[in-house]
């Protein structure tokens, strides 16, 4: 059955797939290209870095991102407000019309890669003022998410667990509160779980809770069979979304027989 769903709206961009995938950590560009396609994603994240030395005619990431794919440049690796702003501006210059969105990422700690929340809020405020559509990566903190709404974030992207950890949802209750408070204040602003997902059930679980989308990279790229995992994640996100729209059954403490009690061949 096809799911009758609204698109995921990120600023001016409408997506029918609610899975956004990263482009890092793949074994080679063929695997990258296949996984982008198999995931069904319509938006990919990329990083902005110094041009690497490259042989004549050698392919690059540019050659494997389909022309109709939306590109979300990140500010990964930035530890200061200034570096974040500089990276975002370079991304926009690099991508032109395709570079209006930015995944705002200001890291505060090397070991956990948890965000520097005050700097993330300041960076979002500054970039929104410069006309960027900001999708900030943030800790699973409801108040931080509300502050990001205040400064004009087009979506909030709380982590489920540390980047690249694959731990799954460490704090489902915080995520539930984030959904509640963000939707109460701005029902039009998507909540996207960014980072920490390890397996499709993690993705399905947060989608069932009502999260608007999931962004992942390592869970696909570092799976033993990345192509198969890309498909599995597509199915997980889709199943979770369909279940959310379908509405789950109420939970009960005791059993409720599925088979009729009438017409039993024996007496009780």
């Amino acid at each position: 059955m096809t799911v009758n769903d609204t698109p995921l709206q990120l600023g001016p961009v409408s997506l029918t797939s609610r899975l956004i995938v990263g482009t890092g950590k793949y074994r080679d560009l063929d695997e990258t290209a296949d996984c982008l396609r198999l995931s069904g994603a319509q938006m990919v994240t990329v990083a902005i870095r110094r041009v690497p030395p490259k042989k004549e005619g050698e392919r690059s990431l540019w050659d494997v991102i389909p022309p109709d794919m939306h590109i979300l440049p990140n500010t990964a690796g930035c530890y200061t407000l200034d570096d974040c702003l500089r990276t975002a501006r370079l991304g926009r210059e690099l991508l032109g019309e395709r570079g209006k969105l930015v995944k705002v990422e200001v890291i505060g700690d090397e070991k956990t890669l948890f965000p520097d929340v005050p700097a993330t809020i300041e960076a979002t405020r500054a970039l929104v003022n410069e006309g960027f559509v900001c999708l900030p990566y943030v800790t699973d903190d409801p108040v931080a998410c509300l502050r990001l709404l205040d400064v004009g974030a087009a979506a909030v992207m709380p982590l489920a667990a540390p980047i690249g950890s694959g731990l799954g949802v460490r704090n489902p209750h915080n995520l539930a509160i984030i959904l509640e408070v963000v939707k109460a204040k701005r029902p039009d602003v998507p909540v996207i779980v960014d980072a920490g997902v390890g397996v499709p059930s993690d993705a399905a679980r947060v989608m069932e809770m009502g999260v608007d989308g999931v962004l992942m990279n390592t869970a696909i790229a570092q799976a033993q069979n990345a192509r198969l995992m890309a498909e599995a994640m597509k199915d997980g996100v889709r199943a979770g979304r369909a279940a959310y729209l379908a509405g789950r059954m109420p939970m009960k403490l005791y059993a409720s027989a599925s088979s009729p009690l009438q017409g039993l061949i024996h007496t009780r």
Binding site: G24, T45, V46, P52, L61, P73, L90, L94, L95
Partner: peptide, 10 residues
């Protein structure tokens, strides 16, 4: 001079 481009990232 800084010259940057896209690379794989998450």
């Amino acid at each position: 001079v800084e010259v940057v481009t896209l690379v794989g990232g998450g």
